[in-house]
């Protein structure tokens, strides 16, 4: 079954009260693995898995939960990771590998990208089952850079993206529509147009004045 077929089947499975049917778990867990293998993502289905774990604690599977959390990171800057966290019982959040994943999420959320790449290197085994995990995270990093910078130091950018080779860096710059400048900076975006000082001045409408004008007559 290819991914699209599966996606449709799952969507049907999720309608109404059937979302809470524990018999769906097997299929849904398979679907999580499929998302990891094929670099696809379905937040709603994954939340349904966590929901079923919440309602049926004896069915809880830590490896699946870990995969769901890692997949949620690939959808940053959306707050999917937080949504997942709210459904995972606190006691599991104190167990490995969930604790490590929580730590990694915090680094990403706080934009400590350099530390993040060090951690990823050390815990490489965690990400083995996820296709293109690093590139998904790079997409998020590029997003944050693109809303923050007008021009960024090339060395810094390369560091943030996890020490890419010159070739890879060029590919990302091209994909993002950025421009290399002669002075060692990368031109990201013209921010002057997006980030402007707003002036809110008072507008006195006719209605405001009319009440005062009435007084003039008396």
């Amino acid at each position: 079954m290819d991914f699209e077929e599966m996606e449709e089947r799952i969507a049907q499975m999720m309608t109404g009260i059937n979302r809470y049917n524990p018999e769906n778990l097997m299929t849904l867990e398979m679907y999580v693995n499929m998302q990891c293998r094929e670099n696809k993502y379905d937040l709603e289905a994954n939340l349904a898995v966590l929901k079923l774990y919440q309602l049926n604690p004896m069915h809880f599977k830590k490896p699946v939960t870990a995969l769901i959390l890692l997949k949620a990171l690939t959808n940053l800057p959306h707050s999917d990771f937080t949504l997942c966290k709210c459904l995972i019982d606190e006691s599991y959040q104190m167990e490995e590998p969930i604790t490590t994943i929580l730590h990694i999420a915090k680094l990403l959320e706080m934009c400590k990208f350099k530390e993040f790449w060090v951690e990823v290197d050390e815990k490489a085994s965690l990400f083995l089952d996820l296709k293109d995990f690093n590139n998904s995270i790079r997409k998020y990093i590029c997003h944050v850079v693109s809303i923050t910078y007008q021009q960024i130091d090339q060395v810094l950018l390369s560091d943030l993206l996890g020490s890419l080779t010159e070739m890879e860096l060029q590919q990302w710059i091209k994909a993002m529509n950025w421009k290399e400048m002669p002075d060692g900076y990368i031109f990201i975006n013209n921010q002057e147009e997006n980030v402007k000082t707003k002036n809110i001045t008072e507008k006195i409408g006719f209605d405001n004045v009319s009440s005062v004008m009435k007084l003039c007559r008396s």
Binding site: Y149, V195, N199
Partner: peptide
């Protein structure tokens, strides 16, 4: 709000006139 251009931060505030 703000953006960074090279090593300079450019800041945009919301100014509310009295």
């Amino acid at each position: 709000d703000f953006y960074i251009d090279k090593e300079m931060v450019h800041i945009a505030d919301t100014k509310v006139a009295r």
